[in-house]
């Protein structure tokens, strides 16, 4: 089934097509949701809500765009809603808005890193860093968009990204170091 057929069937409220669309995108979208959430359970909640939004709003989708991109955008927005709701319920210290010069962190031997490990690293980031890093680096949002979505300033977004990068960098370094040690022992 092409995306076009899928969309048409879903808009007409046909369960078969909705399931087909779900089966097509759910795994990747779960991957997206995992990056934006603290737990797998939360990720699946986001996934569930996101897909309901997708089905209810699919009639507004224009077929000239990428369906996957559109679905992904809805997932990210749903995840951000969850994040914002969580922020309201728990106290968060103000984020310092020091702007630092974003240095380009470069990594050696990145091919040793496997996807699961990288995902784990993102999971371990503080939620604020994680949101900004995901949005900027992976989904390709601009700092302006991030600032609007997260209701922070552009500078906060930039500094959060920098800190996220540093934190990840450090983790990767630790990992490679331990790997190297292991190699040396052999």
């Amino acid at each position: 089934m092409t995306d076009e057929e899928l969309v048409k069937g879903c808009v007409e409220g046909k369960s078969k097509f909705q399931q087909a669309l779900y089966n097509k995108f759910a795994p990747v979208m779960k991957g997206v949701c995992i990056r934006y959430s603290d737990t797998i359970e939360e990720a699946e909640d986001i996934l569930q809500d996101g897909f309901i939004k997708v089905f209810l709003n699919l009639k507004n989708f224009r077929l000239d765009g990428s369906l996957e991109g559109w679905v992904r955008r809805i997932m990210v927005n749903t995840a951000l809603n969850y994040y914002r709701a969580k922020q309201k319920s728990s106290y968060h210290a103000n984020i310092d808005e020091i702007v630092e010069i974003v240095e380009d962190v470069r990594i050696d031997n990145y091919d040793k890193l496997n996807t699961k490990v990288l995902l784990q690293m993102i999971e371990e980031l503080p939620p604020g860093y994680r949101m900004v890093f995901n949005m900027f680096e992976i989904e390709g949002y601009s700092h302006k968009e991030i600032a609007d979505e997260l209701n922070v300033s552009v500078n906060t977004s930039k500094s959060q990204l920098l800190k996220a990068r540093r934190s990840l960098q450090q983790k990767i370094n630790e990992l490679t170091e331990s790997e190297n040690k292991k190699m040396a022992q052999l």
């Binding site: 380009d104 470069r106 031997n109 990145y110 091919d111 890193l113 993102i122 900027f136 990068r165």
Partner: peptide
């Protein structure tokens, strides 16, 4: 040996 931006890797 490779050289890549951390964001790109992720």
């Amino acid at each position: 040996k490779t050289d890549k931006n951390i964001g790109e890797i992720f």
